[in-house]
Amino acid sequence: MDVLDHRICELGEGVLWHPLREELFWFDITGKRLLSHHPATGHTRAVPLTEMCSAAAWIDHDHLLVASETGLWTYDVGTGDFGHLADLEADNPATRSNDGRADPWGGFWIGTMGKNAEPGAGAIYRYFGGELRKIADGISIPNALCFDEGRGCGYFADTDARLLFRVPLDKAGWPTDAPEVFVDFTHAGLSPDGAVTDAAGTLWVALWGAGAVIEVSPDGTLGARHELAAPHATCPAFGGPEFTTLYCTSATQGLGAGALAEAPLSGALFAQPGAGQGKAEPAFKLDTGDA
């Protein structure tokens, strides 16, 4: 993968291809910035934020749903205005949001974690139809929130535990049973970070510490790796006019001077055209959330 955007993030995360704007949005969580890049024009923006934000979904051409350390918000791309939707552990200053993604029903899944990655301090919530409901807890670093093509299950990871989970979903997108381990990455010595599913249901999982995005088949088989020149790959996304370009954020967090000298592109945004066949992310629905 090659660098698309050289702006360095301490903790790049949450890359989203907006299908109507054909524009990428992502966050530097600890740097408190919302970044964007329009590949066709080269136009970029960097929006300073008042608190840590980590993930987004698109609502319409001009609005995003943004997850922050205290809540879920609407964001007007044109005016820069934020509107409050729901509190997200706003009474707990020790936690922040992390990975998040819109689901196929128009809801939004979002993980929380301790600001110092305290063991078991995190949880996963779903916001749907105006309701924020906790669907998993006791998680250290929630990541890899994504969904299979047939709407039958969702996925999430605990990066600290090196486990990728699968959870069955009902026709409205709510879990019907406890999550089960889908892939145990400990045997491969890998740490799963963000993930996205492609048009065939294959998961593309960023590997924190391994400098790659790895394909994982719907039956849990590890496949091809897509390398990038940054050890901390954080979040993949498909985009481009045909959804065939793989994008991935990265981070400098936790890398010493020696590691940064060896990987000076750490923290940049990477791209690989023709990597696979992705699909558009579903929109988040501000109304009742009915599919």
Rank of each mutant, 00 (worst) to 15 (best):
V3C: 06
L4P: 00
D5W: 08
H6F: 11
R7D: 09
I8K: 05
C9Y: 01
G14Q: 06
V15K: 13
L16A: 09
L16V: 11
R21I: 04
E22F: 04
L24W: 01
L24N: 01
W26C: 03
F27A: 00
I29S: 00
R33L: 14
H38A: 15
H38S: 14
A40P: 09
T41V: 05
V47Y: 03
L49V: 07
A57I: 13
H61E: 15
H61W: 14
H61L: 15
L65I: 12
L65C: 10
L72F: 08
L72G: 05
W73Y: 15
W73T: 14
Y75K: 13
V77W: 02
G78F: 04
T79N: 04
T79C: 07
G80L: 12
L85Q: 09
A86Y: 06
A86G: 03
A90Y: 01
A94G: 08
R96D: 06
G100T: 14
R101S: 07
R101E: 00
P104C: 10
F108Q: 10
F108L: 13
I110L: 10
I110P: 10
M113R: 09
A121T: 09
G122A: 02
G122Q: 02
Y127C: 09
L132A: 07
L132N: 05
R133D: 11
A136G: 02
D137V: 05
G138T: 08
N143H: 10
A144N: 04
L145Y: 05
F147M: 09
F147C: 07
G150A: 14
R151T: 04
Y155G: 02
F156A: 08
A157N: 04
D160K: 13
A161G: 03
K171H: 10
T176A: 07
D177W: 07
D177M: 06
P179I: 03
E180G: 09
F182L: 04
V183D: 02
F185Q: 03
G189S: 04
G189K: 06
L190Q: 06
L190C: 03
P192K: 06
D193H: 06
G201E: 11
W208Y: 14
G209N: 11
G209T: 12
A210T: 07
A212P: 04
E215R: 15
E215H: 08
V216P: 12
S217R: 05
P218T: 09
P218G: 08
P218C: 09
L222R: 08
H226N: 11
E227V: 14
A230F: 01
T234Y: 01
C235W: 10
A237L: 02
G239M: 10
G239P: 05
P241S: 03
Y247G: 03
S250P: 12
A251S: 12
A251W: 03
T252D: 00
Q253D: 10
G254H: 08
G258T: 10
A259E: 14
L260D: 03
E262A: 15
L265D: 08
G267R: 07
A271M: 13
Q277V: 09
G278T: 07
A283M: 13
A283D: 08
A283S: 15
L286G: 05
G289L: 14
